[in-house]
């Protein structure tokens, strides 16, 4: 039952009648403000996925985007707003060069002037098996042009997600 299915062509399954050969349609996917929280993250990710599906992205790109945004929004919940929930602004737009994403919060600043760029935690079973420290590694692996800026009382994180479906 877990036989691998062939990769979905761009545009397949799009509800707006795109043929499988249509390139994804560019433009705004999501722009909104919400209060940080694990369930809010779930709801927002579902909205973003809905928008990307409609724009014609395939399963693999959808999964990549969902993972990156989940990791970035989890960081906001767990670190920036560790003390109390607060407002988050997310914008996601499909560009010719990839998916451009921006996350703004008004929580605690990141510990350094740049977004973390950690090595993978040491894995040396059975002694060293890390339970955390993977989030930024995942984000760094799957994005480019990652930028973090502390602007007054705000954290501004932006990045581009390269997409398979744009490179056909």
């Amino acid at each position: 039952m877990t036989a691998p299915s062939p990769p979905e062509p761009a545009g397949s399954g799009a509800p707006d009648g795109n043929t499988p050969m249509d390139p994804p349609s560019l433009g705004k996917i999501f722009a909104g403000r919400f209060t940080s929280g694990d369930m809010a993250t779930r709801r927002v990710l579902a909205r973003v996925k809905q928008g990307l599906t409609k724009a014609g992205l395939g399963e693999e790109d959808l999964a990549t985007v969902e993972l990156i945004l989940a990791e970035a929004l989890n960081n906001v919940v767990e670190h920036a707003y560790a003390d109390a929930p607060g407002p988050v602004e997310l914008s996601v737009a499909l560009q010719s060069y990839g998916l451009s994403c921006s996350i703004i919060d008004s929580g605690r600043p990141m510990p350094s002037d740049d977004a973390p760029n950690p090595d993978l935690p040491v894995i040396d079973p059975p002694i060293e098996i890390p339970e955390g420290g993977f989030g930024w590694h995942i984000i760094r692996c799957l994005t480019r042009d990652l930028e973090y800026r502390r602007d007054g009382m705000q954290n501004r994180l932006s990045m581009t997600v390269p997409l398979e479906d744009l490179e056909r």
């Binding site: 039952m1 969902e66 098996i129």
Partner: peptide, 19 residues
């Protein structure tokens, strides 16, 4: 058992598939 492609990807990226 039964890792779907998105789940397998997380294990691969973090090299936890070796554990």
């Amino acid at each position: 058992a039964g890792l779907t492609p998105p789940v397998a990807k997380v294990f691969r990226l973090t090299r936890m598939d070796s554990v």
